[in-house]
């Protein structure tokens, strides 16, 4: 009995020692010496691995930052400037402030304004509908409403409004990682400046068809009339391919173009209700 006990103890312990020795040498051989700062920075990052920074995952970004020893060109959209400042403090570098962005849906072809002219039946993904036809409304550039952006969003920041069948971006949740921009087969979503108090002005249409054709499919399409371009004093609006585009770096949020648009294609978000004209001018100046 004792013999059995001794034998098993000896065998098992020698096996254990042998394994430990082997493991030790393997660990030595494959040892990766890593900058400890990578771990420090990775801990500061949100850990969502959303890819919004342009790198595959948070750790990857941390590695790149440490490698370059410079923060310019790096931005963690979900973490924002706060996170970048913390990273800067750890590395003893200067943080580069960037203005926060947000995803903007540039289509307002709701069920009411862009009526269904045919019906789609198939896999519930915009990508496939886009391959098959111009869409239920007939607009070849408009939102298909099947929610590829919703699926792509890791932050639960987009949902499809059941009434309009258009996606809605949450001001609070969106971190501007850009996943939805990539997911949208029709390039409707754009990352734009978040704006003070979340105030934004943009052309909510990407249809490049001629005015009359675009209008046939959707009441709120940009028809490329150019009124807004004339109205804008800051050269913020350009017209290309029958579609107006507001450069958010030049726009002063004066709101003059909004009322000028004959099809209500220019949208303003989170502004107080319209007051008499002078006040608007004042406000826009204070915003500059």
């Amino acid at each position: 009995m004792n013999q059995v006990l001794i034998y098993s103890v000896v065998t098992l312990s020698s096996l254990g020692i042998l394994a430990a020795v082997i493991l030790y040498f393997i660990a030595q051989k494959f040892k990766v010496i890593e900058d400890p700062r990578i771990d420090l920075i990775a801990d500061l990052l949100p850990g969502a691995n959303c890819g919004g920074c342009g790198y595959a995952g948070c750790r990857n970004l941390a590695g790149e930052i440490v490698k370059k020893e410079d923060l310019s060109g790096f931005m963690c959209p979900p973490g924002g400037n706060d996170t970048m400042k913390k990273i800067a403090a750890v590395l003893g570098l200067e943080a580069v402030e960037t203005e926060p962005l947000i995803a903007v849906i540039r289509c307002s072809g709701s069920l009411a304004s862009a009526q269904k002219k045919s019906e789609y039946d198939g896999v519930s993904t915009c990508l496939y509908a886009h391959m098959l036809f111009s869409g239920e409304s007939g607009c070849p550039h408009g939102c298909l409403g099947l929610g590829d952006c919703v699926v792509s969003c890791q932050f639960d920041a987009i949902y499809i409004d059941s009434e309009t069948n258009l996606p809605v971006v949450s001001n609070e949740k969106c971190v501007a990682c850009g996943a939805c921009v990539k997911a949208c087969p029709r390039s409707i979503i754009e990352l734009r400046k978040k704006g003070k108090k979340d105030r934004r002005i943009f052309v909510s249409c990407v249809n490049t068809e001629k005015g009359a054709v675009a209008r046939k499919n959707c009441k709120v399409a940009c028809i490329g009339c150019g009124k807004c371009v004339k109205e804008c004093k800051f050269d913020a609006i350009t017209m290309e391919n029958n579609i107006a585009y507001i450069d958010f770096n030049k726009c002063t949020l004066c709101r003059k173009c909004v009322s000028e648009c004959p099809t209500d294609a220019i949208h303003e978000l989170n502004f107080p209700p319209k007051k008499p004209k002078q006040e608007v001018v004042e406000q826009s100046e204070s915003n500059q």
Partner: peptide, 9 residues
């Protein structure tokens, strides 16, 4: 007649 249905073959 209702709307035409579009689906893949």
């Amino acid at each position: 007649m209702g709307l035409l249905t579009v689906s893949g073959s």
